[in-house]
Simulated assay, not measured.
Amino acid sequence: MTAPVVTSGGGEAPSEKIAMTAPVITTGAGAEPEPVAMTAPVITDGQQAPGKVTMQFLLPSKYAKAEEAPRPTDERVVIREVPERKFGVVRFSGVAADKTVREKAEGLRAALEKDGYTIKGPFVLARYNPPFTLPPLRTNEVMIPVE
């Protein structure tokens, strides 16, 4: 990716630009809603309000712990550690349109269940290229957490 993430040292250190990393992981806008057994809608990481997208960026490896990373300058950005998980993954090229992503997720889910894996949550979409990359050269992945 080409755009940097600008962070603030929060008074202790100067601001720092962090090169964007790949993949960019998104939930929402085409991602699978997590089923919730309630009558009112509940928003979770896997179930977004209509039109809302959550993006995850991986920090460079020099930050071994979340608390070592510089503080973001935008309050909407949250840095947190995510525990290690296992995923079933399907890779595809082209534009990651909602219909394509849903089809890939459905196919992957069916294959994982056929092979005896337990699905542990909704799928996420990982994109590896900047938006100006020609569609045939783009790399995308649909990832489903499994046990």
Rank of each mutant, 00 (worst) to 15 (best):
P14F: 11
R85G: 01
I144C: 04
I119C: 08
Y128P: 03
R80T: 07
A110C: 06
P136D: 03
V89T: 15
A96L: 06
M1R: 01
V5M: 14
V42L: 01
E113V: 03
E67C: 07
A111C: 03
T7F: 05
T21Y: 03
P70S: 15
A19E: 15
F87I: 06
E103R: 13
A29R: 11
A49L: 08
G121I: 03
N129F: 01
T2I: 03
M38R: 12
R76E: 10
A66F: 08
Q47R: 15
V146C: 02
A69E: 11
R138S: 00
T7S: 10
I79D: 00
P83A: 09
M143N: 08
P83C: 03
G121Q: 05
S15L: 07
T100M: 09
P122W: 05
E84F: 04
K86V: 10
P136C: 02
V124F: 04
T133A: 00
M1P: 01
T2A: 05
I43Q: 14
S15Q: 10
E68Q: 15
Q47F: 12
E81D: 11
P33C: 10
M38V: 10
T139K: 14
E67T: 08
P131F: 02
E81L: 02
T54Y: 12
E113S: 01
P23F: 08
G107Y: 13
P136G: 02
M143D: 04
P122T: 11
Y63I: 03
M20A: 03
L137A: 06
R138L: 00
P60E: 11
Y128E: 05
M1F: 04
K114V: 01
P135C: 00
E32F: 07
V6M: 11
A3E: 14
V82Y: 01
T133K: 00
L59G: 02
V82D: 00
E103P: 07
T44A: 05
T39E: 07
N129W: 00
A69I: 07
Q56K: 10
F123Q: 04
I144R: 00
V5G: 07
V78H: 03
A19G: 13
M55G: 08
L59V: 04
E147S: 14
F123Y: 15
G88S: 11
Q56G: 05
E147Q: 13
V42Q: 00
V90C: 07
V53W: 13
Q48H: 14
T118G: 07
V146H: 00
A111Q: 11
K62D: 09
E67R: 08
P70Y: 12
I79H: 01
I18T: 10
F123A: 09
Y128T: 04
P136W: 03
K65W: 12
